[in-house]
């Protein structure tokens, strides 16, 4: 039967689409998790048990809201920014290996593709911040630009160290090379990547572009309804994709240990553990200030990332990995 492989890949593709759409459920998950961290219950009303339908209620509410465009806004920048924010968040999933064969397109330059695509988010921040013609928004946009540019560097450097170990830019090859997870070989590299990734995601303690207590809502102050929801969804999609990349690069992706579970399940477990940790960080720490953030990026993470590359080179030299 030669139609079986085709059908199977269609099913896989659909499952990946479902996974991407399931990001919307993180709205509910995060509110529940935040509630528990704060000794609250979180949403309980819409859908029982435990308000599982909260996401649908939120989406219906947002869809039925008026699409407000401020009179003084740069119309096209303002309208396009949410889409520019959302697209890269989706594109990243193209190269992530969910399992040995579960990958949309295993590009041989996967790592470069990821860093190229994720850099687009700064564009959307700037478009929305500048386009809104609002003082808070533009301050958020400038902060986002400074922040994302300076954290891109340690992020890419720590990814390079992984590439050095695996000897390939393809994410699937990187997973296959991890007979021992790379986090064991380069814990510093993982920490750098984690901090830089949280900063790239614009989440507390690095949510300076939004900075509710200072800038109201930062770059998305003027957005409402579904356009705002696009920013919101892209944040969650980015959270999941960053977690997936962390699991892939440092924790052996779909490779399992001990329990004989399917590779996809292993991948999802690892990914969602990271999603949980990112939320845990968010609901624990206060926010840093812009100058402290840049200090951390340039004066600490960058040297550590370089040190990690040197360390990786040493590993390769001594153990011929």
């Amino acid at each position: 039967m030669d139609w079986w492989p085709l059908l199977w890949s269609i099913i896989k593709a659909l499952l990946i689409v479902v996974f991407v759409l399931a990001n919307a459920f993180l709205i509910w998950v995060e509110r529940k998790i935040a509630g528990r961290f704060q000794r609250r219950l979180g949403p309980m009303r819409v859908g029982r048990p435990h308000g599982w339908a909260q996401t649908f209620a939120d989406l219906i509410k947002l869809l039925s809201k008026e699409d407000v465009v401020p009179g003084t806004a740069e119309k096209w920048l303002f309208l396009l920014a949410p889409i520019v924010a959302f697209l890269p968040a989706l594109l990243v999933y193209m190269v992530i290996p969910f399992g040995p064969t579960w990958v949309v397109n295993d590009l041989n330059i996967g790592v470069i593709f990821i860093s190229a695509v994720t850099s687009f988010s700064v564009l959307s921040f700037f478009m929305s911040g500048w386009g809104s013609n609002n003082k808070y928004s533009v301050m958020g946009a400038f902060r986002a630009a400074a922040q994302l540019m300076s954290y891109e560097v340690p992020l890419v450097l720590s990814m390079i160290a992984v590439v050095m170990l695996a000897g390939s830019l393809s994410l699937n090859d990187i997973v296959k090379a991890q007979s021992i997870p790379f986090v064991v070989l380069q814990p510093l590299g993982f920490l750098t990547f984690f901090i830089a990734a949280v900063a790239e995601l614009n989440r507390t303690p690095f949510d300076l572009a939004e900075a509710e207590s200072e800038l109201v809502a930062g770059y998305n102050t003027e957005y409402s309804g579904m356009r705002w929801a696009f920013f919101f969804l892209s944040e969650y999609a980015n959270t999941v994709s960053a977690s997936a990349i962390m699991a892939t690069l440092f924790f052996g992706g779909w490779r399992g240990f001990l329990l004989p579970l399917p590779p996809v399940v292993w991948f999802l477990i690892k990914t969602y553990i990271f999603v949980f940790i990112i939320m845990w960080v968010r609901w624990t720490l206060p926010r840093v200030r812009i100058d402290q953030l840049l200090n951390l990026g340039w004066k600490l993470l960058l040297p550590v990332a370089l040190l990690n590359i040197a360390w990786t080179g040493l590993l390769g030299l001594v153990f011929k990995i």
Binding site: F37, T204, S213, L285, P286, R287
Partner: peptide, 13 residues
């Protein structure tokens, strides 16, 4: 005070 620094959890505690 903690909330002004975006630490929401101490506020609820």
């Amino acid at each position: 005070f903690a909330l002004d620094m975006a630490a929401v959890t101490p506020f609820l505690y």
